[in-house]
Design a protein around this nucleic acid. Structure first.
Length: 348
DNA sequence: AAGTTCTTATTAC
DNA sequence: CTAACGGTAATAAGAACTT
């Protein structure tokens, strides 16, 4: 039996901004797109709990957030700073186990199986991690501890903010029973809808989903069906693994106003290629293909890609490979363009 | 028929 | 105008292709 710890920083970007700007503490803070620029086409990245009281959430269109609280403090995303803080935090966590998986800038798992004898000892480590992070960075986080990654993550969610919780192995299945199925990582809105239709129910709890046989889950969801069957029962065989190399690098851009101006589009496209190329060079990666994304005014999104033999390619090469693909979009449609994207595929 | 490439859909943070 | 919806990345399924 494993012992897994999941750690998640509380309202990360907004909490850092509170720390950097103590005069804003206690007021609603929203980190994300500028609500004025481009009629507010972006979204909320993170907000603090004061802002959440007004119904603001991560991922919400900034225009809507602005209607909810125009008087909130709107701050731009300062990714460079957050990355630096993130590095410092991961360094602290890694001291407690080298088996660490970074999920995002503010979230990680560590495997404590070989480090502790039981869940009480794991809890002590969790408290120690919280303490060290607060000492070093003046930031709070939440911790979930359980027998696998999935249960640890859901447990951590319940502990927020600034909490720590343990779900003992024998409780793993029961504690999921009354929860909505979307608590299961990998089950989102679409999957929930399918399950609702299958069960002919309005709301689906994890316990309801257990009624679906393994075979039926497989028929509906293919390869993932088998995994769902176990997850509904509190089982998750995925391991805490140190993530290796990226498989792709990309950039995309949404225009402030939808446009058909090819000159403008190509100009932005060149910037995207340039940025991806710089990043690829910095990471010293080999490229073996390009993917171009185009989102039209009606939100319809299409991609075109081209694979080629791997190598260290420069901007000019990438441009020559991808511009014909972009032009196909531009000549093939009368619609205005909302977003374009450029991504390179990397070989192992 | 198998292996590779291309496209779309879904999810997560 | 009459719902609003970023950017980055991974994974899976199925179609389309090449060999």
């Amino acid at each position: 039996m494993s012992i897994v710890l999941h750690i998640d920083m509380d309202y990360f970007f907004a909490q850092i901004e509170e720390r950097e700007n103590p005069q804003f503490k206690g007021k609603p803070i929203i980190v994300g797109a500028d609500p004025r620029e481009g009629a507010g086409r972006g979204v909320v990245s993170t907000c603090n709990y004061e802002a959440r009281k007004f119904g603001v959430k991560s991922g919400m269109p900034i225009s809507r957030s602005y209607k909810l609280i125009p008087k909130a403090i709107y701050l731009p995303v300062n990714m460079e700073l957050y990355k630096k803080v993130s590095d410092s935090i991961f360094k602290i966590i890694r001291d407690f186990s080298e088996i660490m998986e970074e999920v995002s800038l503010d979230e990680a798992y560590i495997d404590l199986t070989e480090k502790v004898n039981n869940f009480e000892e794991a809890e002590k480590i969790g408290l120690k991690i919280k303490e060290k992070i607060f000492q070093k960075e003046e930031l709070t986080c939440s911790v979930g501890i359980a027998k696998n990654k999935m249960i640890a993550k859901i447990t951590c969610e319940l502990a927020k903010p600034n909490g720590l919780r343990v779900t003992l192995p024998e409780k793993s299945s029961d504690f999921l029973s009354s929860m909505d199925i979307t608590v299961i990582p990998g089950i989102g809105a679409k999957t929930k809808q399918k399950i609702k239709e299958y069960l002919k129910k309005e709301e689906v709890k994890v316990s309801d989903a257990r009624a679906i046989s393994k075979k039926n889950l497989k028929d509906i969801f293919g390869k993932r069906g088998d995994e769902f069957y176990f997850k509904f029962r509190g089982e998750d065989r995925s391991i805490v693994e140190v993530k290796k190399k990226a498989k792709s690098i990309g950039r995309e851009y949404t225009f402030q106003k939808d446009t058909k101006d090819s000159k403008k589009i190509i100009k932005v496209f060149k910037h995207l290629i340039s940025s991806v190329s710089d990043k690829s060079k910095k990471d010293n990666v080999q490229i073996n293909g390009v993917v171009i994304t185009c989102r039209f005014e009606d939100f319809e999104t299409h991609t075109k890609q081209k694979t080629f033999s791997e190598g260290y390619y420069d901007k000019d090469f990438l441009y020559k490979k991808s511009i014909p693909l972009l032009l196909k979009f531009l000549v093939g449609s009368n619609k205005k363009v909302r977003l374009i994207g450029f991504r390179v595929k990397l070989s192992k």
